[in-house]
Amino acid sequence: MDTTQTGVTPGVGQADGVTLPVAQMTFDDWYQAADDATKALVDQHTRGLKSALDAERADRKAAEKALRDTASKLEAGSAARVDLEAQAERVAATERRASFYEVAHAAGVADLKLAWLAAESSNLFTRRGEPDIEALRQQHPALFGAPTAPRAPGNAGAGAGQAPTPARSMNDFIRASAGILPR
């Protein structure tokens, strides 16, 4: 099966005139090889998404601050104050998790959910609440997408990424020895 790119505009998706196989090409490779007009289109498209994400984060922080301010005005130990403080903690935890996922993805973490659980259980965050990716890398190096060696075909069925050998019955053997073609 041919996995090279076809129909690629010259200069886009090619590095120095060499067409990379699709299986090996990443978005970053494609972006680096793209011409300036294509890069401008991609940047323009993602600019709105980034600004929406920043606005959403600012809104969450403002909501958390408003909840904490309102809770501080209520009577200490009241049910309403406890509920508002718990809601503020949930908002803060959601923001912390979203920030972790963004930083961990940029650092090349292969399994973000597992990395979040490891960081939470080991408290791998700075004083400011930002994830400590280097400490995570030292304690759990397997989380960072190290490429694995491809498995050699060993006729182990679906376990080696191959189709299992078809099961043959005694009837198949008898028909084959009698010269009858299989159905």
Score class of each variant (00 low, 15 high):
M1N: 03
D2G: 02
T4R: 04
T6F: 00
G7N: 07
V8F: 07
V8L: 10
G11A: 08
V12P: 05
A15H: 08
A15I: 13
D16M: 08
D16C: 06
G17R: 05
G17Y: 05
G17K: 02
V18L: 11
L20Q: 14
P21H: 04
V22R: 10
V22N: 11
V22S: 11
A23N: 12
Q24L: 12
Q24K: 09
F27H: 12
F27M: 13
F27Y: 14
D29F: 09
W30T: 12
W30A: 15
W30R: 09
W30V: 12
A34Y: 06
D36K: 10
A40T: 14
D43A: 15
H45A: 15
R47T: 10
R47N: 08
R47C: 04
L49G: 15
K50D: 15
K50Y: 07
D54M: 08
D54N: 14
E56I: 05
R57F: 06
A58C: 07
R60Q: 12
K61W: 04
A62V: 01
A62N: 07
A62D: 08
A66D: 15
L67W: 02
R68K: 14
R68D: 13
R68E: 13
A71V: 06
A71D: 08
S72K: 13
K73G: 14
L74F: 07
E75C: 06
A76V: 14
G77E: 09
S78R: 06
S78V: 11
S78N: 09
S78H: 06
A80F: 05
R81T: 04
V82R: 09
L84K: 09
A86W: 00
S99V: 04
F100W: 00
E102I: 00
E102D: 10
H105Y: 01
H105W: 00
D111N: 13
K113I: 06
K113E: 14
L114E: 15
A115P: 13
A115L: 07
W116R: 08
W116T: 13
L117P: 06
L117C: 07
A118E: 11
A118H: 10
E120G: 07
S121Y: 02
N123E: 14
F125T: 09
R127W: 00
R127P: 12
R128T: 15
R128A: 12
G129L: 00
E130V: 07
P131N: 03
P131I: 02
E134Y: 02
E134G: 05
A135V: 04
L136R: 03
R137A: 00
R137C: 01
R137G: 01
P141I: 02
L143V: 07
F144C: 04
G145D: 08
A146G: 13
G154E: 06
N155H: 04
A156G: 12
A156Q: 10
A156E: 08
A156T: 06
G157D: 06
A158M: 04
G159F: 01
G161D: 03
G161V: 01
Q162F: 00
F173L: 05
R175F: 06
R175D: 15
S177T: 13
A178L: 14
L181P: 12
R183D: 15
